[in-house]
């Protein structure tokens, strides 16, 4: 169509120049990939495990950001899906499965099933009622885990023989770190991509004006359900990785304060911003880690920061970087 070129279009609608900002993810990835090799030189070996945990939580936060930030679904039960993933790994271990890939894959599938079922019911509710129903389901999962004495009940379940990574076993002491990094990068890339896809645009449209979206012919409920299910599946992956990271799983993983913490991390980082999840997790966990070095009272500064963010940076820290990164 010839008129496309002559009409005044907003910048960025057509061809996209590769800016310095689009290199940022690669730089971050390179630094993180090199970290286990460099860390020992500075005596920071301990922090390899810390960064690994950070990356796992980032996966969970990114999945929550997808439904919360892009989809406008204020869910207060996301830790439930993390728990489902973790307990799927426990069930696989208990059943004699030794392959990490099989266990994690199953965790994704099972959490997706749970998320689809829970979403199908919850998404009929709006606002606070949606929040409360997602919370209620997560509580149900919590009590289910507490009562499963085969898997340790309240005390939790220790995985004494770490799962095998197949051909990757023994390549390097920190191979699990790189596997986690690769998966986190994959989840980040995938969610960034979906955000600019047809599906992502439809999801954001629903967040901004659900009635109009239905009136334009969008299957609103189905789109939300697919997003919710996908986010649940990815949260399940995070839970499975967390099980392997700790070699221990307990119901506390699913306590409602864990769901609230995920919500808080995303909000601090920036809802609906691609860096929102990772930034929020990095800020929250690093702050907690540092504060714990100096004091046992490390909750209140975080609480104070949270209140300050709500009042003074309501769109999250990621918006501070926005001007530099206008690539959507």
């Amino acid at each position: 169509m010839s008129s496309v070129a002559t009409l005044p279009l907003p910048a960025g609608a057509g061809a996209r120049p590769r800016s310095a900002a689009s290199l940022l993810p690669w730089v971050v990835l390179a630094v993180l990939a090199a970290f286990p090799l460099i860390a020992p030189a500075f005596g920071l070996e301990y922090y390899i495990g810390f960064v690994r945990r950070l990356l796992i939580v980032m996966i969970a936060a990114t999945s929550l950001n997808f439904i919360l930030g892009y989809g406008g679904m204020v869910a207060l039960g996301h830790a439930g899906f993390v728990g489902v993933g973790a307990y799927t790994v426990v069930a696989m271990v208990e059943a004699g499965v030794g392959s990490a890939w099989a266990a994690w894959g199953m965790a994704i599938v099972i959490s997706a099933v749970f998320a689809a079922a829970i979403g199908a019911v919850s998404l009929r509710a709006r606002g606070v009622y949606f929040l409360m129903i997602t919370l209620a389901f997560a509580q149900m999962l919590y009590y289910l885990a507490v009562s499963l004495r085969t898997y340790g009940g309240d005390d939790g379940y220790g995985i004494y023989t770490p799962l095998s990574l197949g051909g990757l076993d023994g390549l390097h002491a920190d191979i699990f770190y790189w596997v986690v990094l690769a998966l986190a990068a994959l989840v980040f890339a995938f969610s960034s991509r979906v955000a600019v896809s047809r599906f992502g645009h439809a999801l954001m449209g629903i967040r901004d004006n659900e009635t109009r979206m239905a009136a334009m012919g969008y299957p609103v409920y189905r789109i939300k359900l697919v997003a919710f299910t996908g986010a649940g599946a990815v949260a399940g992956l995070a839970g499975a990785l967390l099980a392997s990271h700790n070699n221990f799983v307990s119901p506390s993983l699913m306590h409602w304060t864990e769901s609230a913490t995920l919500l808080v991390m995303v909000a601090i980082g920036g809802m609906g911003k691609r860096w929102g999840g990772p930034l929020g997790v990095a800020i929250w966990l690093t702050l907690a880690e540092v504060l714990k070095l100096y004091t046992e009272y490390w909750h209140w500064p975080i609480g104070l920061m949270l209140i300050l963010v709500v009042f003074f940076a309501p769109k999250g820290v990621a918006t501070l970087f926005e001007r530099k990164e206008k690539t959507q």
Binding site: R16, V194, S197, R198, H201, M213, I223
Partner: peptide, 22 residues
């Protein structure tokens, strides 16, 4: 674009950039 998308194929496309759809 959002209105056009509703009536030109499925919205369940996840990986291709919408901006590339002439």
């Amino acid at each position: 674009l959002l209105a056009a998308q509703a009536h030109a194929g499925s919205s369940f496309r996840f990986l291709s950039r919408r901006a590339a759809e002439d």
